[in-house]
């Protein structure tokens, strides 16, 4: 029984760290990987989704619908910001970093002014279960399942749908796609929207487990960028294996020596990966194939 408990506990902790890394990073990875835009407002899209989710719950929606609502709202806001700000800067990637950073400052400060420094959350649903002497939260299993579902869904959208084909064509050869009648502007807007909606989903699904404050997005940022940097440009070849690798490092170090060791290990792993694989895991896998 001791042994079973240890196995379940390790799997649970690995899954939990994996889910956090995947969900933190997926929105950022879509926008960076597909569009090459480094979106510094990523944390604020997460916050936006979380706040919308809590509002929706307060209006009486059940939590799953509220999370969907938060995700869609963040996606909508993302598309508006793409139209107004990011679209003008596709040829100037450095400027887009600055512009999205500005958006993030406006968003978090605006939220502070509108809704105050903190807001009451919604409480984590579903309760807990016991394995041996340890108790675990069911909701964490939902997070893990969501992370896997998001990866699967992204794969299907970008590889099996007409939108996915158009999106990949637009990314690879924008002028050619344009000449063949693809409305590239719309594709960019949708892709950015999907990235923002994924961030919103992350915010919504983590909202019941966290403190609601205007700067809550920043707690995801480090993990998000670290995962994207280690993973490289491709969401499937990069983000998923990167999250798995980093989750192993983080979960094992945290269980051995506490949170501080986990954080240090995470950052050391990144330094090591970047030193050995400058293009991230994506680059490594693609070179292997060639």
């Amino acid at each position: 029984m001791e042994f079973v408990t240890a196995i379940v506990s390790s799997a649970y902790q690995f899954g939990d760290a994996f889910a956090f890394l995947v969900l933190s990073a997926c929105g950022l990875a879509v926008i960076f990987g597909m569009m090459g835009v480094i979106n510094l407002a990523h944390g604020e899209f997460i916050m936006c989704g979380a706040y919308m989710t809590v509002f929706a719950v307060n209006w009486g929606l059940p939590l799953p619908l509220a999370i969907l609502c938060g995700s869609l709202f963040a996606g909508l806001v993302g598309m508006i910001i793409e139209r107004v700000v990011v679209r003008r800067l596709y040829a100037r990637p450095l400027d887009s970093i600055l512009a999205t950073w500005g958006v993030s400052l406006i968003a978090s400060q605006g939220t502070l002014i509108l809704f105050g420094p903190t807001m009451r959350g919604v409480g984590t649903p579903l309760g807990s279960f016991m394995v041996g002497a340890l108790s675990f939260s069911y909701y964490r299993l939902v997070l893990i399942a969501t992370a896997l579902a998001v990866l699967l869904l992204l794969y299907l959208v970008f590889n099996k749908t007409r939108f996915g084909v158009l999106a990949r064509a637009t990314i690879q050869a924008p002028h050619m796609a344009n000449a063949l009648g693809v409305d590239t502007n719309r594709v960019y807007a949708f892709t950015f929207g999907i990235g923002a909606a994924l961030a919103g989903l992350t915010g919504g699904i983590y909202a019941p487990t966290m403190t609601m404050i205007p700067t809550m997005g920043t707690t995801f940022i480090m993990e998000a960028f670290v995962t994207v940097v280690v993973g490289g440009a491709d969401v499937f070849l990069g983000t998923a294996p990167a999250a798995a690798l980093l989750a192993v490092v983080k979960a094992s170090l945290t269980s051995w020596q506490g949170q501080l060791a986990g954080q240090i290990g995470l950052l050391l792993a990144v330094i090591l990966v970047i030193r050995l694989l400058p293009k991230g895991i994506t680059g490594f896998i693609l070179k292997d194939r060639a």
Binding site: S9, D16, L134, M216, T219, A251
Partner: peptide, 19 residues
């Protein structure tokens, strides 16, 4: 256990405490 400021995920800490 000392937790760096800004950390928001505590699953492992919670389990360390239970153990």
């Amino acid at each position: 256990e000392f937790i760096p400021l800004g950390v928001s995920q505590f699953s492992q800490t919670i389990q360390n405490i239970q153990t």
